[in-house]
């Protein structure tokens, strides 16, 4: 589903590459933690998958698309297959929960009939069934992240990228969010989650890819965050 082949990314402002000959293969339906200290290249990894940036060398495949060589006009197609969740939720503050989720479908041209049908379904899935009319600031952090996940998932992407999705949440709420991501993973969606959260990685026992100084230093099928960290 996701394949990186000797991907190197160098930024002009830095002498050390942000990613250094990274090769990773993620199968369809996998759940992968991407861990590593700040500046290890996790964000660059995710940005390259989204084609926010192109690699300096190497190639990246998402589904059947050659991401690095994708012409500009095809980039939206790629992004429609990838859902995204962030630490800071990125909800639109003046739109209700339902409108926030619907927005993601409107802007890719889905019909209002589809939207009316799909939005309540996905809100039920994330456990916000009765809260479609609320505004984001009326919700707790965990609930806001659920809205963000609903928005990322509503178009049924093949891949869900989560960049520190629990970074702003307390441990209990984080657990709930992880359960939700697991549920989404069980629908067959590949999940890649960048995180610093030891306890989550340790408790989930999923595949762990660790980056350090832009290189893959560990790739374990059932990993923990790391001994002595």
């Amino acid at each position: 589903m996701i394949r990186l082949e000797r991907v190197t990314k160098t930024y002009k402002t830095s002498s050390r590459p942000a990613l250094d000959r990274v090769s990773v293969n993620v199968e369809k339906g996998e759940f992968v933690f991407l861990i590593g200290p700040s500046g290890s290249g996790k964000s660059t990894f995710l940005r390259l998958l989204l084609r926010e940036d192109v690699p300096t060398r190497g190639s990246i495949f998402v589904s059947d698309m050659d991401v690095a060589k994708l012409p500009r006009r095809r980039v939206p197609k790629l992004r429609q297959r990838i859902g995204c969740v962030f630490q800071d939720f990125r909800l639109l503050p003046n739109k209700t929960v339902g409108e926030n989720v619907a927005f993601a479908l409107e802007v890719i041209g889905k019909s209002s009939g589809t939207i009316r049908k799909v939005v309540p379904e996905v809100l039920d899935l994330v456990g916000l069934g009765g809260k479609a009319e609320r505004l984001p600031h009326e919700l707790s952090g965990g609930e806001q992240q659920r809205v963000a996940i609903a928005r990322a998932f509503v178009n049924r992407p093949l891949v869900l990228l989560a960049d520190e999705p629990t970074g702003n949440l307390d441990p209990d709420t984080s657990q709930d969010i992880m359960l939700l991501l697991e549920r989404i993973n069980r629908t067959g969606t590949t999940v890649v989650m960048a995180t610093h959260d030891h306890s989550i990685v340790d408790s989930m026992r999923r595949r762990v890819v660790e980056l350090d100084m832009g290189q893959v230093v560990r790739d374990e099928v059932r990993g923990v965050y790391g001994v002595g960290r």
Binding site: P76, L78, R79, I82, R90, F103, A104, I108
Partner: peptide, 17 residues
């Protein structure tokens, strides 16, 4: 910019943004 950022992320085309 927030709206436009979200639009880009969910794969809206240039025309839409």
């Amino acid at each position: 910019r927030t709206e436009v950022g979200v639009m880009r992320l969910v794969g809206a085309t240039r025309w839409y943004t």
